Amino acid sequence: MFREPQEQKSCSFERIYFSRGSDASIYRERKQLGRLLCPQILEAVNCDLKNTVFSFIPNTAEVAFYGMVEGLHKYIKKYQKETLLKRADKISDEELEEVLSMAPRVEKIAIKDVKLRTFITQDADRQDMVSHVYDTTYGVVKSGEDNLVVIDDSIVRGTTLRQSILRILDRLGPKRIIVVSSAPQIRYPDCYGIDMSRMGEFVAFEAAIALLKDAGLEHIIDETYAKCQQAILDGREKKENFIKAIYAPFTDDQISGKIAQIISPKGIHSSVKVIYQTLDNLHKAIPDHLGDWYFSGNYPTPGGNKVVNKAFMNWVEGKNQRAYV
């Protein structure tokens, strides 16, 4: 007896974060993730390239950064062409020079002092470590005038941003810090080998819960928990991911906005905006690896639904333990 062929659902997040960046296909995919973010970034800075500095959070975001820069150059070439072709009158040398000299202001702002990965560091050590990992480059951001765009490979917990990076970047005096994630919002736990199984650690989940409370929709939390409990009693805990209901009332932008509030440290002067990759663009960038359960909650096996429901129940019950233990 043969099983029907299934759609390949190999993990896309592994390729964004864990895989060797020197692999040719990984390199192309990460660059494409950066390119595809350009429309959102340009909208966020109102296409003001003159007063925007672009950088990345080292080290794994560097390749996506190169793709982002290529996308910015493509936008500039299009702008230059359209501007010059639309001119009915003779353009002055000064105006021509201004148009032709357009270029993104690309700088290495954040410097990682040691080769450490804060995401995979032990929980007890992470908070102390992040304050010692990063330094920054001074003298390239115009205080009070510039936007500062920094791209990261992903924002899982937001710990490094909240406790270290945003404070460091704020010292440079940008009027606005725009943090860009090459991955979509990580909303759901993993159960296939990466230790990401506690719901309360995801900043996207934290944001969704905060939005529910802000909107007076706490009953959705209780109803979701009740559905998880009933599914266990009925032997249906593997049938459905009930936790999608937590995110359902809100748009991606609403959740990103709340994340920006959550990760903004008290006392900083710059405003903070967070931009995430879209699911559609994730699939465009990584078309051969469609496993997106971290972001969509669509698990490739029934066991994934069981883990996510259990992870949510653990969070409600105050149990700080892995959902597959």
Rank of each mutant, 00 (worst) to 15 (best):
E98N: 10
Q230I: 14
D214R: 13
E14S: 08
T251M: 04
E317T: 08
Q163S: 12
P249V: 06
K239M: 12
I221D: 05
E218S: 14
S131K: 14
R157K: 11
P300R: 06
V69R: 00
G267M: 04
Y79P: 09
S181Q: 04
L96F: 10
C38V: 13
Y299L: 02
E223R: 09
P58F: 08
Y134C: 06
V316C: 14
S296D: 00
M68L: 12
G158F: 09
K78W: 09
I165G: 04
L49E: 04
K284W: 02
R236L: 15
L49G: 08
T301N: 06
V274I: 07
S181V: 13
I275E: 00
N59V: 14
A285K: 02
V203D: 00
Y27P: 02
A61E: 01
H219F: 15
S19K: 08
H269S: 11
Y27M: 09
Y192A: 11
D89T: 11
N309P: 04
S143K: 12
R171C: 10
I221G: 07
P5Y: 05
L290P: 10
H289G: 00
D23F: 06
E14K: 03
I57K: 03
Y138T: 11
K50W: 05
K142G: 01
L100R: 05
L96W: 06
K258D: 04
K50D: 14
E70C: 10
K81M: 10
P184H: 08
K310G: 02
I243V: 15
Q80I: 15
P265G: 03
T137F: 13
E7R: 08
K238R: 12
W293M: 03
S12V: 15
V179W: 05
E29H: 13
I268S: 01
L282H: 07
A215K: 11
R176W: 12
K31W: 04
S10C: 05
L148S: 05
A88V: 13
L279I: 15
G21H: 07
K74Q: 12
E206C: 10
V133T: 09
I263A: 00
M313E: 04
S25W: 05
K142V: 13
F13A: 01
P104H: 07
S154R: 04
R322H: 13
I243K: 03
R28M: 09
T159V: 06
D93A: 09
T160W: 02
E62G: 08
P174M: 08
G34Q: 00
V130K: 01
S10K: 06
G193N: 09
S101E: 12
T83R: 05
A204C: 12
V274E: 00
G67E: 07
P39V: 09
I177K: 06
D252I: 11
L233P: 06
L33D: 02
K9V: 11
R198G: 10
H283E: 13
I275H: 00
I165F: 06
D93L: 14
I120K: 03
R28K: 15
E4Q: 11
L290F: 03
V114N: 09
I178K: 09
I232P: 01
D292L: 07
K258M: 13
K258L: 04
Q185W: 12
S182H: 11
V133H: 02
L166I: 08
S256V: 04
R20P: 07
Q185K: 10
L161A: 09
F119C: 12
Y134S: 03
G257P: 03
D253H: 06
I268R: 05
S271P: 02
V106N: 00
D195N: 14
M68G: 01
I221E: 05
L42P: 08
